[in-house]
Structure formats: structure tokens, C-alpha cells
Design a binder for these strands. Structure first.
Length: 849
RNA sequence: GCGGGCGUGGCGGAAUGGUAGACGCACCGGACUUAAAAUCCGUUGGGCUGAAAAGCCUGUGCCGGUUCAAGUCCGGCCGCCCGCACCA
């Protein structure tokens, strides 16, 4: 029998599925649905191993659910706006649109080689005018619903990408794409009002049971809810100052008030105080370099203004401008209680301010308790606090809040760390924001009848700034209100807007409305979403917000877009360096006796850690090269084997070859078995011996693989299939053909979702005329997944000393007797009488002597 | 600093509190072959006793605890990884 020819087989079955429209999905509300989605790719031009892993997992689930009878939606699209296209335009002089669509065409071909069960009829790219036109409609809808606004704010400016960024897109003080240190700028920008849903986005996390705990926690921390009190100080200059605190109980320990350098009061005071103005400048200068934030020496400037203590008008607290107070959180102003807050303590020590403990830990004496270099933040009883003395922390918080609320001076509030989502980008290759600026009428939304606002075809990428701004005609329009001359908004949407609703569009990609409500009601939410952990906050939080917006506008009836989320690990590879410390590609080396050398030489190469495949470390393996040599099924099997899907996987040549050998082995097992009866042959009753063993192995494998795929434990499903293959290989000549057929068919059906081409070839070789993709998932016979006799380990004092084979369901007494009768047990007991015998039915016997 | 996760053979990794190391990779031995590749069979945590069959000790980062029984639960350390980071 000929070796399995993967290339021939894969081309053939992909053609067969295509001509039968096997993966064309119909919206059929009568059938139970399953929506499987992988995060859609940016069309960089080539697929990488991360894509292969991601789309393999999704495809396994999609094919598995399809076989189980679900109506499966498994679409593919392109997250196609973004900066790389602009960079290509600038560097190569191409049109960003042409560049993007060429990349899409190339990647589509590569993805198709993987044999994914995708409904390609639903494919779209976010840069298709048909898509972004609908997004513009949604932008206007959100605007009318009060979920979009334009405001001046301190924003993050990425000096390399020449655009503003949302808070979520600043990682360690650097732009998420460019890696450039971001600067603070005060600019007028467009925002989505995600904070309108702060509490809802937080609370609903609890209901996302099929999300990783880690992602829920990260979102929880990002939203950052804290309960506290907002109240007003009266200032010596006649004004008032709002502060927010979570520790109103420590109010009598206050020794100063501090405001942010960006606080309006600081700006105002600086007008008449050159030294203060210089101090604020200094704060800004240091504040933007993130290295300085790390070491963050506390700095303050005494404004000379004082604040009256809210419970004692004669008690005056100095008001400082302090670099550690952030304008973006709370009110941008605080009161400082040094004894019970580390930052306040550092500040007080530096400026010689009083440190008065007001919360005394249990067992300490209020008269002698002092705070040194470490603030006390634990529980205790109030002291030095007048009417609060003796109360515990919570009671004191309540008392202060109650009194200040009664005076109308304060309110209990909930504060969030989450800020509104800044969505405008000063980039031309994105979805134009459909707004118009008129000198007379101000900001005007584009009329819906004027949509879509298409990007011009002739963008010039020379010079700096946004090419949309410099285009000779594009932005010049008449005002929809007064008809006078006006200009378009030249900012475009953050590309994360594009990806915040694409999953809803897949429900009906031909719909005249952005989202077809009926189709969305059937398909949404996504049952299983798969992608990288890097979107734990960004995309996954924005989509949750956007879905709430869509719900409010009547486009859907759901709040949560993704019922199940799985975050896969990265694909890694060993790294290599030559003696000059330069990275060396895997293709340039060869290994001898575990050491690496440059190919065909004795020049040694240093083997480094396994790291995420990246161009910069030259440790990338191109998927198409692997598919070319071994076929798609081998690369898919590799991605599913051994390593649990949430962990990082290391690509190795040896592993790939091992997978390829297994592909061949399955093919041999199927094609080299002789004298198989025809499909559908009944198995004679009463199988015994080797035949019964094989039947049991078959049904155990069906049950276990089904269970493992249900739980996304692909690596264990793979192990189960190896076990079944071993059992088939080990079956001796006594096993009837019908039993062999049952085992082979089960194995082939079980690998169907994972190695679909090999499975079809084997299914055909087994005499079937139908396709696996049309064949239902096999059912395990419960009577065969359990054997009649079981092996139970017998321990003496917790140490395993022997085992007994006994009928399943034997009563404890006979199990105990059999255990005590074992030679090994008699020996281990050394004549001592057992003090106690613990029998755990069908598990273990432990004899305590 | 705060929050979370993880530490099991040479490697990837299995293991509802109940036989630690399933399954794979690698290695080694054997069969087939003129030979090699491919394939098939077998061994493989460490140590010890034994001619063999078999058996014993030890072993899941470290120390302690709970339990008849701990990789698993609890407490305390050590190490690594990730996220957030002056959030009042």
C-alpha cells in the first residue's frame, strides 16, 4: 500500500468540501446553533504559527459541534484598517487599499490550505466600504444616544505613530504598536462613553462563567471600582475644593491637602505665581518620562492657600500641588493622612508635616503608638479623632460620611478607574468619523442619507500629519444644517471600533442594516471565542461595551458578546545566536549531539531560550513551508498535541516529524487491515478476550475524546487517540473483522475534527461513500466503557503493597477479605492484626496496622 | 508595592484527596535489511536486593500541618512567569 500522500489528499478533499458547499451555513432558527469564532487576523500578508494554532483550535470545535448536530457558524474576516498599510504606502508608494487587499488574497489562500471548515461566503474586511458604511451609521446612532461625545482632555500622544491613543493602548507608558514613549497632550478628541457602563461591565463579569478567571480579574482591576466619600473643603481664598477618599475615617489624621499639577485650581494659582508655574512645568517634564515615574520622588509645592478642616473651621491644612496626585482619578485632589497612607507619609516626611496616628491596631496603646517609615493601613480602633474615638474603621467611615452628608458637604460615591474610550485617530487608513464642523453651526452629524463617507482613492503619503487633512477636496463640504462651507472630521475611528461589532455582522453579512436583528437573535452570543490573552482588556472590553450600545439601540437583545472565551498560549521556538551575538535562523543551523552549529560547518551556535516566534529574534518557522512538506493535518495535529492549549507551545522539528509519522501510522492501520467486512456489518454478541478488550478501548476512546473536546482539552483528546491506535495495533488475529472495523471507524471519526483530510481518506478507504463532514459523531456504549472486573490497589498504612482483581460492584466485605488474603499483604502486616480497614468502593483498600 | 498563576522524569506533559509519571518526544536495545531509511517489538524517575521471578527503599521546589490516605487541602518559605502600578 502506498504511503499517504498528504498534498494530494488535502487538495482533493478541500475541493470536495467546496463543491458540496459543506460549510455553507444557513440561518435556520429551527436548529440548535453553535457560533464558533476566532479573533480575526490583521492582513499582514502571511499567516504565522499563532494563526495556525488559533484557527486549528476553532476548527476542531466547529467540526466537532457540526458532527454533534449543531448548526455551526464559523466565519472568517479581516481586521483590515491600520497603520502597516500606511507605512507600506509611505515606503513603497502603493495604495494602502491595494496593499491590504493583496495581503488578504495571499492570506486567504494560505488559510485555505489548512482545510478550515469556514463559511467563506460570509467573509468581509473592515476596510470594505460596505462594512465601514454601517459602522458610520452606528457611530451616528451612538452619537444620538449620547454614547459619543467630543471633549478636550489630556490624552496620550504617540509621537511615532503620530496619533492619540486610548488608555488601554498605552502599555508601560508606551504606545501598544510603536513602543514609543507616549506624551501627554491636551487635545479635543472623540470619546465613546464606556464609563456609562462601568458598573454593569464590572458586575456582568461574574456571569461570564466560561471566561478565564484571569481575564475577568484583569478587567475587574482595569475598571477599578472603589467606594468612598466625596466632600468639599472651604479654602482660604474663598473657593471650595472637592476631594475623593476611601478613608474618611482618617480625616482627623489629615495634615495637608494636595491637588494635581493639572488641577484647574493649580492652573489658576500658577497665573499669579511664577514659581508655581515653573513647578508645574517640572512635574510635566518628569511626568512624561516613564522611567521617572518608576522612582517617583514625591514633590510638592505649598500654594500658601489653606483648607479648613470640615469638622473644625479653625483647623487649617496647607494646600500643596503634588506630583503624585493624578488629575485623571477621582477629583484630582486629596487630603493627606500620613499615618495611614504610604504616599502621604513619604510626602509628609519630606516636607516636615505632622504624622498623627488615628487608627490604632489591636493591642497597641494610643498614647505610645507611633508610625515610623511605614504607614499603618490595617484594622483597628479610632483615636485622636474626637467623636470617632473608639469606633472601628468601618463604623468611623460611616459616621464621617453620615455627618458630612447631613451638612450637604459630602456624598458617598463610587469611583472608577475606567476612563472613556478615546476613539479618534489622526490616521487616514481607517473608518472616517461621520461628522462635519461648521463655523456657524458647530459640530454636525453627517446626514444618514449621505452615508457612506468613503475614503478618497488618491491619498498622498508625503510629509507629516494626516493625509486626509491635506487632501485638496475631500474634507471640504457644505454644512448639513446651514448649507454653508464646512469641513469634515478628518480623524478616523480607532481600529478597535471595527473589531467591536464584527462578530454581530457575521450573523448576516448582506443585511442593509448594520446588524440584522433576527439573525443576531439566532446566532449571538458567540458560543466559543478563541484568541490571544493580549486582548484581555482592549478588544474584549470594548466589544462588551459596544454590545451594550447595540442592545440599547435595538440591534441585539444581548449584553455579552462572547459566552465562552478561550485564550490560547503563544507559539515559541528555540533561539540561536552566533559568536557575535547575532540572531541566527533555525534554517541556518544543524544539531549534532545536542549542540548547534552553522549548517555544514564546525562553527558553534549558542542555543538560547525558547521564545515567542518573532522576526526580530529570527526564530520564525513559516507555516506554509511545514504544510508543503508534511501537509495541513500534521501541523494541525502538532498544534493540538502535548501542550495544553492555554500554555505556550514550543515548535520542534522532532515533534513535527513525530506527528507526520502518526499520520502515516493511522493511514497504515486503516489500509493494511485485511478481511474487513463491509460497512454496517453487525458485531456478533458476546465478544470475549481480545475482541472485548478492543471494543472496550474503542468505546472508552469515544467517551474520553468527546469529553475532552467538550472541555477544550485537545492535548488529552490527542492522547486518547494514541491509546486507541495502540490498542488497534495490538489486537491479535483472534479479533473479528467487525470489531476491528468498529475500532477503525471510531478512530477515523474521532480524528475527523483534528485531521480532517486524513480522516476523509481513511473513511473512504473503509468503504464509505459519504463524507466524514456529513457523518454524525460516534456514540459511546456505556456498557462497554466500564469493565466487569476492576483492579484495586491495596495499601498498608498508606503504602501500596499489592492489588486485587475483583468484580465491579463486589461488596466491601469481600473486597476486604480478598485484600487481606494477598501474600504481599500478609507479609507486610508481619503478623499484626489490622486495626482498621478502609475500603473505598472501586478505588482503593487501605489497611491500617 | 498590589493582584493572579505556576513549580511533577532528559523534554512536552497525565493524574474527581485514593496504584504518581497516562500519552507523546528523545534515548537505548532487539527484529527486518547487503546496508540505510521506513516499520515493528521492547526498556527507560533515582537507588538497592536477586541468577531469575519478584521485592524493598526513595521520589511531584523547601519546611511544617490536616487525613486511614496529600502532586492535589491548610500554614510558612524559596524560585519563576504574567497583569496592574503614586488609583487617594
Amino acid at each position: 500500500m502506498a504511503r499517504y500522500n498528504a498534498k494530494e489528499s488535502e487538495t482533493r478533499w478541500q475541493g470536495e468540501w467546496n463543491s458540496r458547499q459543506a460549510f455553507l451555513t444557513r440561518n435556520d432558527p429551527a436548529r440548535p446553533k453553535c457560533y464558533v469564532l476566532e479573533m480575526f487576523p490583521y492582513p499582514s500578508g502571511r499567516i504565522h504559527m499563532g494563526h495556525v494554532r488559533n484557527y486549528t483550535m476553532g476548527d476542531v470545535i466547529a467540526r466537532f459541534r457540526r458532527a454533534q448536530g449543531f448548526n455551526v457558524l464559523h466565519p472568517m474576516g479581516w481586521d483590515a484598517f491600520g497603520l502597516p498599510a500606511e507605512n507600506a504606502a509611505r515606503e513603497k508608494g502603493v495604495n494602502p487599499r491595494d496593499w491590504t487587499y493583496a495581503n488578504i488574497a495571499a492570506m486567504r489562500e494560505q488559510l485555505k490550505l489548512m482545510g478550515l471548515s469556514i463559511d467563506w461566503s460570509r467573509e468581509f474586511a473592515t476596510c470594505d466600504p460596505e462594512y465601514y458604511a454601517h459602522q458610520q451609521k452606528l457611530f451616528l446612532d451612538f452619537y444620538k444616544a449620547g454614547l459619543v461625545y467630543r471633549a478636550e482632555a489630556d490624552v496620550n500622544w504617540d509621537p511615532v505613530d503620530q496619533t492619540v491613543l486610548a488608555n488601554e493602548q498605552v502599555i508601560d507608558g508606551r504606545g501598544w504598536r510603536s513602543g514609543a514613549a507616549v506624551e501627554r497632550r491636551k487635545l479635543s478628541q472623540w470619546f465613546f462613553k464606556i464609563t456609562a457602563y462601568s458598573d454593569d461591565l464590572l458586575k456582568a463579569l461574574d456571569g461570564l462563567e466560561r471566561w478565564p478567571e484571569k481575564v475577568r480579574l484583569m478587567q475587574k482591576n482595569w475598571i477599578g471600582r472603589s467606594e468612598g466619600l466625596r466632600f468639599k473643603f472651604d479654602l482660604s481664598n474663598g473657593g471650595g475644593l472637592d476631594v475623593f477618599t476611601t478613608r474618611p475615617d482618617t480625616l482627623f489624621g489629615a495634615s495637608f491637602v494636595a491637588i494635581s499639577p493639572d488641577h484647574p485650581l493649580a492652573t489658576e494659582l500658577a497665573k499669579g505665581d511664577a514659581k508655581l508655574a515653573a513647578f508645574i512645568d517640572e512635574c510635566h517634564r518628569i511626568g512624561t518620562s516613564e522611567a521617572a515615574v518608576e522612582t517617583a520622588e514625591k514633590m510638592g509645592f505649598d500654594t500658601g492657600v489653606t483648607a479648613a478642616h470640615p469638622f473644625d473651621a479653625n483647623w487649617k491644612l496647607p494646600v500643596y500641588v503634588a506630583n503624585f496626585v493624578l488629575m485623571g482619578y477621582g477629583t484630582g485632589a486629596i487630603f493627606g493622612c500620613p499615618a495611614h497612607d504610604q504616599r502621604d507619609l513619604d510626602f509628609a516626611r519630606k516636607y516636615g508635616l505632622p504624622v498623627l496616628p488615628v487608627v490604632i491596631p489591636e493591642g497597641a496603646d494610643p498614647k505610645t503608638f507611633v508610625v515610623g517609615e511605614e504607614a499603618y493601613t490595617g484594622p483597628g480602633k479610632l483615636a485622636n479623632s474626637r467623636f470617632l474615638d473608639g469606633l472601628d474603621v468601618d463604623a468611623a467611615k460611616n459616621e464621617v460620611a453620615k455627618r458630612l452628608e447631613a451638612e450637604g458637604r459630602g456624598t458617598r460615591t463610587v469611583n472608577y478607574r475606567l476612563r472613556d474610550w478615546l476613539v479618534s485617530r489622526q490616521r487616514p487608513w481607517g473608518c472616517p468619523i461621520p461628522m462635519i464642523r461648521c463655523r456657524t453651526c458647530g459640530l454636525q452629524p453627517v446626514k444618514e442619507s449621505d452615508l457612506p463617507i468613503l475614503l478618497p482613492d488618491d491619498l498622498q503619503f508625503k510629509g507629516s500629519g494626516n493625509p486626509l487633512d491635506h487632501h485638496p477636496t475631500w474634507k471640504h463640504v457644505s454644512c448639513p444644517q446651514c448649507g454653508g462651507s464646512a469641513t469634515r472630521e478628518t480623524d478616523t475611528c480607532d481600529t478597535f471600533v471595527d473589531s467591536s461589532w464584527y462578530f454581530a455582522r457575521f450573523a448576516d453579512t448582506k443585511s442593509q442594516s448594520p446588524v440584522n436583528r433576527e439573525a443576531a437573535d439566532y446566532w449571538l452570543p458567540v458560543d466559543q471565542y478563541i484568541g490571544g490573552i493580549e486582548h484581555a482588556i482592549l478588544h474584549l472590553l470594548y466589544s462588551r461595551f459596544f454590545t451594550r450600545g447595540l442592545h440599547r439601540l435595538g440591534y441585539t437583545n444581548i449584553d455579552e458578546p462572547f459566552a465562552g472565551l478561550f485564550t490560547q498560549g503563544m507559539v515559541c521556538h528555540e533561539t540561536y545566536k552566533n559568536s557575535n551575538g547575532e540572531w541566527v535562523e533555525p534554517g541556518e543551523i544543524e544539531k549534532r549531539d545536542g549542540k548547534a552549529f552553522l549548517k555544514n560547518s564546525t562553527t558553534p551556535v549558542v542555543i538560547g531560550a525558547s521564545e515567542k516566534m518573532s522576526k526580530s529574534k529570527k526564530n520564525v518557522i513559516a507555516p506554509e513551508a511545514i504544510i508543503d512538506v508534511f501537509g495541513a493535518d500534521t501541523i494541525r495535529w502538532f498544534m493540538l498535541s502535548d501542550t495544553p492549549p492555554e500554555r505556550d507551545i514550543e515548535w520542534t522539528d522532532a515533534g513535527a516529524e513525530g506527528c507526520w509519522r502518526f499520520v502515516q501510522r493511522i493511514h497504515r492501520l486503516v489500509t493494511e487491515t485485511e478481511n474487513l467486512p463491509p460497512p454496517g456489518t453487525k458485531i456478533a454478541d458476546g465478544a470475549e478476550g481480545a475482541a472485548l478488550e478492543l471494543r472496550r478501548a474503542t468505546h472508552r476512546a469515544i467517551a474520553a475524546v468527546t469529553d475532552d473536546l467538550d472541555g477544550l482539552r485537545f492535548n488529552r483528546a490527542v492522547a486518547q487517540i494514541y491509546t486507541l491506535a495502540n490498542a488497534i495495533g495490538a489486537a491479535d488475529a483472534s479479533v473479528p473483522g467487525a470489531v476491528r472495523r468498529e475500532a477503525l471507524e471510531a478512530m477515523v471519526l474521532l480524528i475527523g475534527p483534528m485531521m480532517p483530510h486524513l480522516a476523509e481518506t481513511c473513511w473512504e478507504a473503509l468503504g464509505h461513500t459519504s463524507l466524514i463532514v456529513e457523518t454524525p459523531w460516534p456514540q459511546a456504549d456505556a456498557a462497554l466503557t466500564r469493565s466487569d472486573t476492576i483492579t484495586i490497589a491495596v495499601q498498608v498504612n498508606g503504602k501500596r503493597r499489592g492489588e486485587i482483581k475483583i468484580a465491579r460492584g463486589a461488596d466491601n466485605k469481600s473486597v476486604e477479605q480478598a485484600a487481606l488474603a494477598l501474600d504481599a499483604i500478609v507479609r507486610a502486616l508481619e503478623g499484626k492484626a489490622p486495626r482498621r480497614v478502609i475500603v473505598v468502593p472501586e478505588r482503593i483498600v487501605n489497611i491500617v496496622a
